[in-house]
Write a protein that binds this DNA or RNA. Sequence first.
DNA 1: TTGAAAGCGCTAACAT
DNA 2: ATGTTAGCGCTTTCAA
Lengths: 335, 335
Amino acid sequence: MGKRITSHDVARRAGVSRSAVSLVLNGRAEGAISAQNQEAVLRAVNELGYRPNTVARSLRNASTHTIGVVTDSILSTGFGGDMVNEATRAAAARGYLLLVVDCDRNPVREQEAVQVLKSRQCDGLMLAAEHLREWQPPPGFADEKCLLLDAVDPSGQVPGVVSDEVGGARSATELLLRAGHREIAYLTGESHYLAAGMRVQGHTKALAAAGLGPQLVECGWDISDGLRVGLRLLDSPDRPTAVLCANDRVAAGVFLAAARLGLSIPDELSVVGYDNDRNVAPHLGLTTISLPHRAMGARAIEVLLDVMAGRAVESTRLLVDSPVVERASVAPPSR
Amino acid sequence: MGKRITSHDVARRAGVSRSAVSLVLNGRAEGAISAQNQEAVLRAVNELGYRPNTVARSLRNASTHTIGVVTDSILSTGFGGDMVNEATRAAAARGYLLLVVDCDRNPVREQEAVQVLKSRQCDGLMLAAEHLREWQPPPGFADEKCLLLDAVDPSGQVPGVVSDEVGGARSATELLLRAGHREIAYLTGESHYLAAGMRVQGHTKALAAAGLGPQLVECGWDISDGLRVGLRLLDSPDRPTAVLCANDRVAAGVFLAAARLGLSIPDELSVVGYDNDRNVAPHLGLTTISLPHRAMGARAIEVLLDVMAGRAVESTRLLVDSPVVERASVAPPSR
DNA sequence: TTGAAAGCGCTAACAT
DNA sequence: ATGTTAGCGCTTTCAA
């Protein structure tokens, strides 16, 4: 631990008491400390480079102004980092610091992390998932002021901030329908993923509204999956005119498949991704559905601070919109 | 802050004094507390679910067992997450918690973050970069026990743990030479990136040892760059037989270009990437140079704890090896 | 072998 | 309007 400048030093230098220093620094000085002394305190603070010892303040106030965040694999995969990042900002803007512990999907480490964060006296606790999933909170978690982020509690006890997957897939589909497409294939992620199922729902619903049925192809989540399935699906004269992809990486695979088959995008094939993956979508000119990670992170802090303040949450699933990001991979069908 | 079980509660329940509880819990009981009472304390701890209040302990011990980590954009880009993740583990194994603040490359936020972490009384401070760069530590940083991770201090004051970029590019080149290639193009990242320059060095050195000169093409770091440059470079009969890429995303772009041009990899073209990007390399069967993020993270904690213990660091640049990861994108040249 | 007491740096109730 | 004091929960002398 660094320096040794305490409020006592400041008080001495300013010629006032330690309580005076405390009052000034906590904005409770008005009507209690003379303007002259306030001035003196502030000057001493600057001259000495004094910063209050947060640890002592935490002990005294029974509040650390920290929020403990346990993540499953956000750090290791890099997916969802924006969410945590924006949460960090939103928290900082309110004087809170996030204590983030990534547990790499290891339940034992998750349990330990919750214990560690509790013993560090976090004012609130959060479980943040890389992508939408069910997440049974570890023991002791639900005893605290807490919230899930991009996850739902199967027991319904802890509320969660989640993205609107159904709505996102619906928007994507409507976009293709508006462009004139009638033969749309959907390369879905594995069906045991929560998000995959919800997206299929939204997709199917939008098609039904246009009097169409879905063409679903279970695929996967990676470039290689998009390539493999794309090659099979597109190498035929009655291929679909548009493909909706499980995510942007799959879309990249479809781009690769189209290149091999000599199909040009978007003239002969429209492609829509999902996630708005910064490493993929902009570089491919890919139209995609944005996962609203930043908004979710900000929302989560807002809600959790409400919970910490004792206010009730209106619902157990707090939906955040997933807007379409239009780029150049969609055009009217050529036939 | 949660429940209110203190060491006092434990002491009462065990029928001993608070100091006895402290001694037992800190392993200093032997020869001081009777076996019977130790037993009683442990039992009471379990029954009550007591966990020591870390804040109080920190205040008393003048040590928080935390390490403050300021990152430039690891969280937002997801690149280098493994580094932080492994650092978290290594720290946890020694009873330390990482306080990670991502500042999104914003210098003002970086300054603030350092101040916040200092006032939180972190025992050590770290600056961790998304990828190798020069990083002038913010004011106040170098006053603490500190270290850079994947970054170098231009003033040479603060030591840094960095990957061996020169060695990595040399290994990659040697691999292609061993496979029989003589016409190797290197799609470099922008030259103002520190890593790009060092990789060119390693590449050139390895070629020189084989009596060859480099074919350097300044390119960029993204899929679109690889595609663009790849189309130009490979659409000619005297194209290179092998391409070494600035990173794996560029390599993905080259794959795309090769697909368009009808070139099969690795039969007609060998490709080597850099980074071992988990979202790209394995799915493309791409041979690549691994950025040793995990090893770097672990090493950083090790070194920083040494610094915190007052031990001197042997060098200002602590190199970590960058090993080759062989997959299926390299074969002997076809001509 | 154990308990009483001081004190880490801060804030807030209470005197002055 | 300002200073004194108690105490947050813990560890660590120091007496008993």
